[in-house]
Amino acid sequence: MTPEVVTLSNNPILYSVAMLAKILVAFTVTMLIVAYATWVERKVIGRMQTRMGPTMTGPKGLLQPIADGLKLFFKEDIIPAEASKFAFILAPMMLLGPSLIAVAVIPFGGDLVIGDYIVPLQITDLNIGVLYILAMAGLGVYGIVLAGVASNSKYSLLGGIRSTAQMVSYELAAGLSIIAVFMLSETLSMRGIVAAQMEPLWGIEALSFIPNWYIFSQPLAFALFVVGSMAEINRTPFDLPEAETELVSGFCTEYSSMKYALFFMAEYANMITVSAIATTLFLGGWSGIFWGPVNFLLKVFAFMFFFIWIRATFPRVRYDQLMFIGWKVLLPLSLANIVLTGFMVLLWQ
């Protein structure tokens, strides 16, 4: 008997157990990476600026994230008297929620065969997977907006205003840039896109030693997506909503204790999500020489290192430069890329 994909109807027990396990593992791994991304970021940036980074807590400072978490946990939780309390508490959750939900459709490995059943290593395979992630990314901005408005402080409000303008501008460019990928893959399912990238490059057998990763066929789309999503998740050089030198720390100025920690976690969770999407869409997802999830995590880590590297290297852009890049460079380029890809697809067939 050939193995079949496990569903709720053919083996409810295995399905439920596998589902719970996948959710738990994906969530735990994401949170662990979030914690240790802060350590890696401080270490790497420290080294790049000829400093040591954290060294005191545990060997090589490895316990630093835990110590930070504990410290923030025991800090006094201050809610400003002038703030609107409900929105103030809701805002950090609204920021972290969407970025964690997006992990649900990311395929982190191939198929696992247990007995007579196949368990796909992905929490759920939506046939509109990528759109779902873009939709969730679009909702993340409300956390920042709400934090800005609810804090009732001018720095927070300015951070919120900047964030809205930035999100609308760059979401468009990032969203349009990956349309070119759909035109090649002819599917919106994350699993389908990874499967399409496992064939030899451009369908030519002689080039089968190079995988058909979309970074090779769509280098422009890849660059546009990386820049666009860097702006969407407020990473340097696009971290204007929380520009320390001018806005104290922007939308999270008034936050303290665990609420502040939630903002931090959301930033790193967003970074993981974006890295995972870029890996899936452009770098062949879980395909590679090792076991699926290992390949996938290695690629994600490489990507996150790239983001940290960028942060240590580039100065923050000015606000008019931000708008210029978004509307006059990224948007026309992504539209041109769609037209070009359309022509290429037509010629190729």
Binding site: L131, Y132, A135, A137, V141, V145, I161, T164, M167, V168
Partner: peptide
């Protein structure tokens, strides 16, 4: 109609409402 659902969130909740909120805040 999952496509419509995703577009509904992306376009209306994720873009148009963000613009409206931007104007309100500005």
């Amino acid at each position: 109609a999952p496509f419509m659902a995703a577009i509904q969130i992306m376009v209306y909740a994720g873009a148009i409402m963000v613009l409206i909120v931007f104007v309100i805040m500005l």
